[in-house]
């Protein structure tokens, strides 16, 4: 963010250290949560199982809002993991921000547009593949010619804007949230004295609000992904 980001080269590609480390942290947190909550699965659910079932019901509910029932199972896992990953990513930077020698190591992965655009691109690709799988190449790409042939310009452009807005919306919210946290912390608290005391409740309030925003953004991202997939399937 404000601090420098270090990059390294691997197999001829440039990697951002902060993104890699933060991504791994999110990965480990999610695997741990899923592992711990899915022990002792039984007909009468325990705490962890209840939590996961609630989450699965929640994401399946999002899917059922726009997809036909027989398609829900095919995208249930994607929506579930996407929601969990985005929510943890959005909130990670609110509580853990690690810098070393002025180089940011851990922050919200979703405060980098490359990460959010990656997920947005994944969703758009899934929508395309789902459309082709269901309708076949010919009928799927014919949909771009509706309602008029000239509309193909609008439709292709719409795909591109969908891709950008989907990714940049979540990035903007998380990035600005983290930015404000950092401003409160560095500029306000650094003045010391009464400012430091005032900074603490502000920081707490903004953290709470950002958790709320992070959840909303993850929900919106999954909802819009579902809508785009439904559109790809020809379910207007």
């Amino acid at each position: 963010m404000d601090g420098q980001v270090s990059t390294f080269q691997f197999l001829g590609m440039t990697f951002n250290t902060a993104n890699i480390v933060s991504g791994l942290v999110v990965f480990v947190i999610l695997v741990a949560i899923m592992f711990l909550c899915s022990r002792h699965i039984s007909m009468k659910p325990g705490k962890g199982q209840n939590f996961l079932e609630w989450l699965i019901d929640f994401t399946n509910g999002i899917l059922k809002g726009s997809l036909p029932n027989n398609e829900v199972n095919a995208f249930g896992l994607y929506a579930f993991v996407l929601f969990a990953f985005l929510f943890v990513s959005n909130t990670l930077g609110l509580f853990i921000q690690v810098s070393m020698h002025g180089v940011t190591l851990v922050r919200s992965p979703t405060s980098d547009p490359i990460v959010t655009l990656t997920f947005s691109l994944t969703t758009m690709m899934i929508a395309q593949f789902a459309g082709v799988r269901k309708l076949g190449y010919k009928r799927h790409f014919e949909n771009y010619l509706h309602p008029f042939k000239i509309w193909i310009v609008m439709n292709v452009f719409e795909q591109f804007t969908d891709f950008l807005t989907l990714g940049l919306r979540i990035f903007g919210v998380v990035f600005s949230g983290e930015m404000l946290l950092k401003v409160i912390y560095t500029d306000l608290a650094a003045k010391g004295g009464a400012w430091l005391i005032a900074a603490v409740p502000l920081e707490v309030i903004w953290q709470g609000f950002s958790v709320f925003l992070g959840a909303i953004q993850a929900f919106v991202f999954v909802t819009l992904s579902t809508v785009y997939i439904a559109k790809g399937l020809g379910e207007e």
Binding site: T14, F15, G23, I114, T118, F119
Partner: peptide, 16 residues
């Protein structure tokens, strides 16, 4: 940084 994209996609697939 294309690498990040690739990394996140691989991570996400393994996570899924």
């Amino acid at each position: 940084y294309y690498g990040d994209s690739l990394f996140y996609i691989v991570c996400f697939l393994i996570l899924m």
